[in-house]
Nucleic acid binder design. Structure first.
Length: 434
DNA sequence: TCTGGGGTCCTAGGACCC
DNA sequence: TCTGGGGTCCTAGGACCC
């Protein structure tokens, strides 16, 4: 019995940039086209690689040393997220020429809802998908893979079906063809834990999962996996999130440093820097966290951390740094080499909602406000960390010669030429925060 | 996969209230 | 003082994604 006989109740496309970071690099520098290119130099492991390298068996996460053995003429580039984000924005803009209903899912992927567009565009869904692909490929100078299906999960199956540069259409009445040989762990949202569980119950393929009786699904699976089951059967469950992001549940900043360090002040300054960065982001979205979680990560990848709560939600780093300083010794173990620190800001409220009842605390915040407004203005003019706190200084100095991407001349993208974005002045003007 | 960095959502259980 | 039932909020931990 067919899973679903309805034709297209909805037409959802998923668009996925092929080898996105490596392709952006080649689009900016055409001399790289057709060459084995990998990004991730700053980490020493591959984050994105061109199809020339994929053909040789190079995979994400592989060490660059290993890749050099496989392909001695490989071109290794550091990640340049500013350029990639720019291409990402261009991708969204092109898709929006066809429909406003676009979900910006990640830097190299988006969903769009084409339902009802056949009439206004006088094109079939297939023709619309082809036109979008044509515009993306020619205008961005790289290829994209597209899936067209009745929902997001199946559109994802489609975009992965043929890569690179594929366009795969999965109508509801042909779902079985695509799912019958597709391993269940290839489905978006089904990870190693769930596929191991399903395997124990004799389920290997996506079709076997989709064909399980609803009673079995309800009795054995939690909500996310019940929803996936419905989508695999051609139903529309997951709506697109098309509004611009203006809210976060949490904001986090973590940074690894090599080599690991047992120097207490250095480790603390790394935390201080992460706090500053997280607060910059919170202010950009006008969010005020009321809780902070900070942690240290040892060389052995063990974590120790602490969660702290503020009397008043706010987004200026001073108070967070003071709090973290106070309880730092509860987390830090002397003579232990740490490889990373991180902070997570939680309980985020929109600034307007902050009540003005705790007079002392609020007036303290108000006092600092103009200072940070100026800091944010300088950052947007000259680049991040034009100005930073004294407690962050150790981290800034060391950053220049550790694994920071750095701002070496010549690596600044041509796309930002003249904008002076990467310039760093580094005046510790706010002084030490105790 | 010898391991970056940034997120989301769901579930179960406890505290507390009526 | 005890019991029953129901609601809300919060937290910790798990699983997954790019």
């Amino acid at each position: 019995m067919p899973l679903s006989i309805r034709s297209f109740p909805r037409a959802i496309i998923h668009i996925d940039g092929d080898s996105f970071f490596a392709s952006c690099e080649a689009a900016v520098n055409p001399a790289l086209k057709g060459k084995p290119v990998v990004t991730g130099k700053e980490r020493g492991i591959a984050s994105s690689m061109s199809y020339e390298l994929k053909a040789m068996g190079v995979k994400r996460g592989m060490s660059l040393r290993e890749i050099k053995k496989i392909c001695p003429e490989v071109i290794i580039l550091p990640s340049d997220y500013e350029t990639y984000s720019l291409f990402s924005k261009r991708m969204y803009a092109i898709v929006r020429r066809y429909t406003e209903a676009v979900e910006e899912y990640s830097i190299d992927e988006c969903f769009a809802d084409l339902t009802g567009m056949r009439r206004s565009l006088r094109m079939s869904y297939e023709a619309i998908a082809e036109a979008i692909k044509h515009d993306l490929d020619t205008e961005l100078g790289m290829t994209f893979s597209i899936g067209l299906a009745p929902n997001k999960v199946l559109a994802k199956v489609g975009s992965k079906w043929k890569k690179p540069s594929g366009l795969t259409i999965i109508p509801a009445n042909r779902v079985e063809t695509y799912l019958s040989k597709l391993p269940i762990d290839k489905i978006w949202g089904i990870g190693p834990q769930t596929s191991a569980f399903l395997k124990q119950h004799g389920i290997q393929t996506s079709l076997q999962y989709a064909q399980k009786p609803v009673e079995w699904i309800d009795a054995n699976m939690s909500k996310p996996y019940r929803e996936i089951w419905h989508e695999l059967r051609g139903e529309f469950v997951y709506p697109l999130t098309t509004e611009e992001k203006h809210d976060y549940q949490s904001i986090s900043k973590t940074k690894t440093f090599t080599p690991a360090s047992a120097d207490k002040e250095f480790v603390f300054s790394q935390l201080s820097k992460n706090i500053e960065n997280a607060c910059i982001k919170a202010r950009r979205y006008e969010l005020a966290p009321k809780k902070i979680f900070f942690f240290l990560k040892t060389q052995e990848f063990r974590y120790s951390g602490l969660e702290l709560t503020l009397a008043t939600p706010q987004s200026l780093p001073n108070e967070f740094i003071r709090l973290v300083r106070e309880s730092f010794d509860k987390v830090y173990r002397p003579r232990t080499p740490y490889r990373a620190t991180g902070v997570v800001l939680m309980g985020l409220e929109h600034n307007k909602e902050i009540q003005m009842d705790l007079f002392g605390a609020v007036s303290e915040i108000i006092k600092w406000k103009p200072v940070y407004a100026a800091v944010d203005a300088m950052d947007s003019k000259f680049g991040k960390h034009t100005v930073y706190l004294g407690s962050t200084m150790k981290a800034m100095k060391r950053g220049a010669h550790t694994n920071e991407r750095g701002d070496a001349p010549g690596r600044t993208s041509k796309l930002f030429k003249g904008e002076n974005r990467r310039q760093r002045i580094g005046i510790p003007m706010l002084g030490e925060v105790k």
